[in-house]
Design a protein around this nucleic acid. Sequence first.
DNA 1: ATACTGTGTTAGCACTGCAAACATAACGCA
DNA 2: TGCGTTATGTTTGCAGTGCTAACACAGTAT
Lengths: 191, 191
Amino acid sequence: MSTSGKTAYHHGDLRAALLSAAMEMLEGGEPFSLRAVARRAGVSPTAPYRHFKDRDALESALAAEGFRDLLDGLGGGRGLPASLPDLAEFAVAYVAFALRRPALFRVMFGKPCDGADDERVKAADALHQLLADALDRVFPDADAEALASAGWGLAHGLACLYLDGKLRAASDEEVAGRVRGAFLALVSVGA
Amino acid sequence: MSTSGKTAYHHGDLRAALLSAAMEMLEGGEPFSLRAVARRAGVSPTAPYRHFKDRDALESALAAEGFRDLLDGLGGGRGLPASLPDLAEFAVAYVAFALRRPALFRVMFGKPCDGADDERVKAADALHQLLADALDRVFPDADAEALASAGWGLAHGLACLYLDGKLRAASDEEVAGRVRGAFLALVSVGA
DNA sequence: ATACTGTGTTAGCACTGCAAACATAACGCA
DNA sequence: TGCGTTATGTTTGCAGTGCTAACACAGTAT
């Protein structure tokens, strides 16, 4: 490492350094590439290949980190949805996360994500399961699976549409209000 | 052109040829690049720049075509949603489109889409407006704007999640069933 | 001590988007 | 008819990318 005066041919914890460099670039708006990440970490252009098979593997690791943060943000702050209004706030928080960390959100979702062993798949399943569990407790008679998909779908769809500029709002507050409104409009239309 | 025996230094309708070549490649699963598209159209690597400012411009044109097809598919086939079940079928059709033409769908939505003059923005607005109009007729008392956003959001979110493998189903029929189920579960939970 | 293994480096390939300078053909107008 | 102008395509070239292969260095185990 650099903190000691040692030769530092071996970095010490390159993998972590690469991940944080990549995350910084991603969130900083710079288009991130393996080579650029390597530059930022101060190593040779191909050093990352010792730690990540692929560009995809790096992305996958970033995405996994994103899922952890998302789960923390959703579960941690306000407790799991326990009522209809809670569900609405869940959607609001989900969309807020997407708008606060747009590039990360895109990395988390933007691509096929095929491999069964993909970290992302497990993380996504965890989110879905968490939602389904919570909903099952709140609405025991309903089809929790279907409801969880719907809730996730609605939140995710609105997040994407606002993120891509397909839906527009002036401020984050307005987005929150619109998301809440959309959710409530939909659940109350069947009454 | 090539159909006549002429010299064919000028292609005749390169722009259209490039677009259809690009669409074929996109739908064919090949990662599409300006150069590859040019190759496929049988012209020099940089010829496309005469017709598209950017790689983005080509993508934008493809996306616009995609939006037209999507609108046709939604509006044309079954008439606009006129009832709650219709809305569900609308969502089903939306997701089906995404799964049938995944790469196109990603191009249509996958990126910021900033420019105010972007064809995509207008196309997306048209979709939103169409939905809002239809819903306003069906549910005059409801907030049509909010409802349209919710409907679009739900359909779009489910489309993304199935497309990315975050939600999974064995067959297209199962997807359709689950989308319907999710929609109905959500609107009936508020009853 | 010696081999081995893990980690980093250099060199090089095929590809990409894009800009500049050039070539060719069509069209407008005398 | 002939001559410029303009639209369209070509060649050349640059910087950047992902990735592989061959090499260099350092710590560990035998």
